[in-house]
Simulated assay, not measured.
Amino acid sequence: MALVSTSTTTANGTAAVLADLGPIAQLRAGGLGRRLPQLYAGLVLYGLSIAMMVRSDLGVAPWDVLHTGVTHHLPFTIGQVLVGVSFLVLVFWIPLREKPGIGTVSNALVIGFSADLFLSVLSTPDSLVARAALVVGGVVLCGLATAVYIGAQLGRGPRDGLMTGLSRRTGLSLRLVRTGLEITVVVIGLLLGGALGFGTVLYALGIGPLTQAMLPYVIAPVSVRDVVTSAE
């Protein structure tokens, strides 16, 4: 069901609020001329944020602790591992009955390829100050990128869908499920030699507030004709 506030509905029949639309409704909700470019801009920026945090050498996001750990044992790049893990996560969507959208598949592919592209042109600075600026900038950019691609309203990413699906099936809160998932992937990543550090803590503390603060400014309006208002 979609959470829609009628107070935000405009005269032309659109609503600039987040709506939980199915895969077909996402495409029928209008505004694709804005929403598709916004989706891919957000995903590319997300890939850049990953590269910035990796090159800072001061720690990466929880899932990237896992991704960097895997690269120590398999002949794959971080981006390739990210793509592989994304599609593995999508397998777990099946019993959870989550429905992927164009944004879900794009998320799995574009972020990984973008991360590898930016990693090929970025290097780790010698200065600690420059590295700190890189990791802080990476976290802030990740918050913006997350808001931008979520605001496009074209489907959740693989990891987000796993979180919401588990929450719905278990009755546990989203916060608890997310915490459990991220602790799990960090532990596995550490056992594999992943890159845990200051950036990991900064990401864990900052990504939620940053995304929440930026999201209202980048939500793309969708047609209310394809949105079912929830009574929640």
Rank of each mutant, 00 (worst) to 15 (best):
84 G>F: 01
52 M>N: 05
48 L>T: 07
204 A>V: 13
132 A>V: 14
1 M>G: 09
37 P>N: 12
227 V>T: 15
73 H>E: 06
98 E>V: 12
222 V>I: 13
35 R>T: 06
203 Y>W: 14
224 V>G: 09
203 Y>S: 01
61 A>H: 02
67 H>S: 13
43 L>D: 00
138 G>C: 06
109 L>W: 12
152 A>L: 05
129 V>A: 15
232 E>W: 13
160 D>M: 11
149 Y>N: 02
143 G>Y: 02
26 Q>K: 15
49 S>P: 06
47 G>F: 11
127 S>P: 09
196 L>W: 14
136 V>N: 00
116 D>H: 02
99 K>D: 08
14 T>M: 10
70 V>D: 07
59 G>I: 04
228 V>G: 06
122 L>K: 06
22 G>K: 07
137 G>N: 05
1 M>F: 07
55 R>A: 11
58 L>D: 03
159 R>I: 02
181 L>E: 06
5 S>F: 14
171 G>D: 11
144 L>F: 15
232 E>C: 05
173 S>N: 08
39 L>D: 02
179 T>D: 08
207 I>C: 02
178 R>P: 11
192 L>A: 01
111 I>Q: 00
32 L>G: 11
144 L>W: 07
202 L>P: 02
150 I>P: 00
136 V>H: 04
136 V>Y: 04
77 T>H: 10
142 C>P: 00
35 R>I: 07
29 A>R: 10
112 G>W: 08
163 M>K: 10
8 T>W: 13
3 L>E: 13
205 L>Y: 05
210 L>N: 01
24 I>T: 13
56 S>L: 04
187 V>N: 09
219 I>P: 00
208 G>T: 01
48 L>Y: 01
124 T>S: 15
142 C>F: 14
86 S>R: 07
136 V>W: 03
56 S>C: 11
197 G>A: 08
42 G>Y: 05
8 T>F: 12
59 G>M: 09
100 P>W: 03
1 M>R: 12
197 G>N: 01
17 V>D: 15
73 H>W: 15
47 G>T: 14
60 V>P: 04
222 V>H: 09
31 G>F: 02
64 D>W: 02
232 E>K: 13
148 V>A: 01
206 G>P: 00
15 A>W: 10
154 L>A: 01
153 Q>R: 13
87 F>V: 13
230 S>A: 14
215 L>G: 08
192 L>Y: 04
220 A>K: 00
48 L>W: 06
211 T>E: 10
30 G>K: 09
220 A>L: 01
88 L>K: 07
158 P>M: 12
94 I>E: 03
49 S>K: 10
202 L>Y: 07
164 T>Y: 08
35 R>G: 03
177 V>I: 15
34 R>H: 11
32 L>K: 03
14 T>E: 15
206 G>H: 06
97 R>A: 12
232 E>G: 14
93 W>E: 02
65 V>G: 11
161 G>Y: 00
33 G>Y: 12
179 T>W: 13
142 C>G: 12
107 N>I: 10
138 G>T: 03
32 L>I: 09
102 I>W: 10
21 L>R: 04
32 L>R: 05
135 V>Q: 02
55 R>C: 09
111 I>H: 02
199 G>K: 00
30 G>E: 06
135 V>F: 05
15 A>T: 14
28 R>Q: 15
188 I>C: 08
192 L>V: 05
149 Y>I: 04
16 A>R: 12
88 L>W: 11
